[in-house]
Amino acid sequence: MIGAETRQRIEDFLLDCAWTIDEDDLEAWPGFFAEDGRYRITTRDNEERGLPVGIMLCEGRGMLEDRVLALRTANIFEPHRYRHILGRPRLRESEDGLIRSDSSFIVMRTMQDGRMDLFAAGNYRDLLRVEDGQVMFQERAAVLESRRVDVLIVIPI
C-alpha cells in the first residue's frame, strides 16, 4: 500500500528531475540516481523483443556524470532545449521494498533558431527507492514509443 504522502513525494521527485533537465541544470541530474543506479533510453520495440541494446545505457552514477561531461565538453551538436510534459505516475510496490512507477512523458524540443518539434513520447519505467522520505532512482528506463530518433540524442530524456 503506497500512502498519499509517499505518492506526493514521488510525484514531486519526478517533476523535479524533469525540471532539472529542462532548466539545463544537468550537473544535478545524476544526483537523482542511487550510486549504483541505472539509466536507459530504449524503444518499445526493443523492450517488447527483450533486446538489451537500446539508445543509451548508464550503469552507476559515474556513467551519468560522464554523459553530462561529454555533453558539456566533447560532443558537438546544434544547441537545443527540452520541455517535458509528464503524466501522473502509476505506482505499484515492487521487490526489495522498491516502488515501480510508470509515467507517460512527451518531450518538446526547441532548436536555437526557434524550430520546435515533438521530439519524444513514451513511458518512464522507473524503480524507485524511498528511504527516510528521500526518493531516488534505482533504475530509470525512458522507453520511447518510436524507434526513430530525429537527428540525435545528447541531452538525457
Partner: peptide, 11 residues
C-alpha cells in the same frame, strides 16, 4: 544474434 536496434532520421 541481434542485441538491439533503433534508427535515426538525418536531414
Amino acid at each position: 544474434k541481434v542485441l538491439g536496434t533503433h534508427s535515426q532520421i538525418i536531414h
